[in-house]
Design a protein around this nucleic acid. Sequence first.
RNA 1: GCCGAAGUAGCUCAGCUGGUAGAGCAGCUGAUUUGUAAUCAGCUGGUCGGGGGUUCGAGUCCCUUCUUCGGCUCCA
Length: 646
Amino acid sequence: MIKITLPDGSVREYEKGTTPLQVAQRISEGLARNVLAARVNGEIWDATRPLITDSTVTLLTWNDDQGKSTLWHSSAHLLAEALEALYPGIKFGIGPPIDNGFYYDVDLGDRQLSPEDFKKIEDKVLELARQNNPYLRKEVSKSEAIAYFKEKGDEYKLDLIKDLTDGNITFYQQGQFTDLCKGPHIPSTGFIKAVKVMSIAGAYWRGDEKNKQLTRIYAITFPKDKELKEYLLLLEEAKKRDHRKLGKELELFTFSEKVGMGLPLWLPAGASLRERLVQFMQRAQIKAGYLPVITPHIGHKQLYVTSGHYEKYGADSFQPIKTPQEGEEFFLKPMNCPHHCEIYKSKPRSYKDLPLRLAEFGTVYRYEQHGELHGLTRVRGFTQDDAHLFCRQEQIQEEFCKVIDLVLYVFRALDFTDYTAQISLRDPNNKTKYIGSDENWQKAEEAIILSAKEKGLRTTTVLGEAAFYGPKLDFMVKDAIGRKWQLGTIQVDYNLPERFELEYTGSDNQKHRPVMIHRAPFGSLERFVAVLIEHCAGKFPLWLTPEQVVVLPISEKYNDYAKKVLDLLKNYDIRGLIDDRNEKIGRKIRDTEVKKVPFMLIVGEKEEAENMVSVRKQGDGDVGSMSTESFANLINKEIEEKLATF
RNA sequence: GCCGAAGUAGCUCAGCUGGUAGAGCAGCUGAUUUGUAAUCAGCUGGUCGGGGGUUCGAGUCCCUUCUUCGGCUCCA
């Protein structure tokens, strides 16, 4: 008999060789029907793999990320079986689960797949799924494995086997298809109830462009048909929120081939929105003790040689700007930090000056690859809400705490309520690839962990994700439809102070090296605005939105009164317009709704006589009438409450 | 940069196997003076992404180039 510990802490005895699935069955049939895999002593196992020692077992279902990825991984095998049945002789690369579904890389030979084939593939997958074939795990020797795929003529699998160690190789078979795979897998194909082939794309074997290009087939599966339908609805919703589409509709920004790809042009509505974000951050930063600096858009080559960016990125970026002076070269700045380091060096610094917090909305230029450009999220010129905090080692924790406060203030003001923080630390097994002393790293990592804890952040910690120059803390937000985005970042840097030989005089009258912290709560304004647009579907918070109010006169007779109303609103710092077109009120309302303006003030004979406005809220309809002053006070109060928490 | 798909009016899109470009919205003009999500009528607007080729004739077929989209790779 063996002892099985379940997540609730209960311990039960089972016969040796009992499977996690049987454990589930003993608990309830309903649970057993939903078990996709199991976590056994921290490892993910097949639910049908016999337990032979005392174990801690967690049963995984569709509600667990690992349950999902197990189902998707198994689905990849099923997709491969379907493809092999439809297109005999094709060869297989790899077929892993991904964030939303899975893919399989296949070598189709001379065949071309097109979206018209998707339905056929889906039908075949479902047909095979209904056979409810079990996924059978089989341990094989390296020579057996090689023999099998030689026989089958699948050179990609042979390439994979080459790197595996003998005695550690497993096959999984379901139905007519056997694949090299370490697993785990779901018990049988019948768990897969719905499938959608999403797209195809080219992908090099092993991600190397020198290798053959395979066809990558993306698909997603679900244990219930209803979930597929929900997923497709979510995709539609994401399409509606696409910042490129909304940016065009709301006239926030545009691109021009003539100006250059990846170089956004901010239109008046977008530019004023962006300026409001900048002012919002500037106000908060002044409170937090930041000092503004301004640096030019270009810098001498030597600046980037010193910073190390020239060596690392010079060749792959915008090429130097030459001058009439022979041999003189300038670069568009790819980062603000080298300039800020020079500002630090502009005079001798004392420990009393620290922390020194230099802030700049600095526009930087990076030559992103052609295929990588995407709306505002991936551009070649963008503005960071950058700041560099120069401090003493022992000030790191306090500075981190203050930056976290600032980031959380941003999230609150912009209605990002669901976020986590990722702490990226050194790879403890490979300490040599990082710059800075072991002792400092340890202290900095500890400071980050403690400040995240002090601020009550939900965190995940990832070893080996730190930059070579220091550990960092990144914020991940979930938007209104559940997608994850990485936003603010705070990074410790031991490298640049070293390269620029930054110093301060300590209380001991000795020279010391400061630590630098990079931080950008928005990251880049371009990317942040893109995420924000998609998060709020273009319905920006009241304090930020381009127009807060549109005054709608019932007919041209009331344009003068509308003007009076708007003038009064302007005295209250409320942004608005009058729709004085010769249109019916229904039309004006519709057009204003479509522009996602939060409030409409309808004025006609009645309102003019009573000196009132009739208020209509975007999405909610008529909310009654009031005086212009009370309306102005109402919305200003709402804005104040939103922004006053820092 | 690589693979695949696409580029037609300001926007969204139609245009079958080649026969000489069309709709809705927007814009302009006029009528209407309007009460909570589209008033009516008329008009303007396109070297069909650019260049080259095949053809009596190209939006349509071929080549090339640019851009966009979906991926790959990379990201200080």
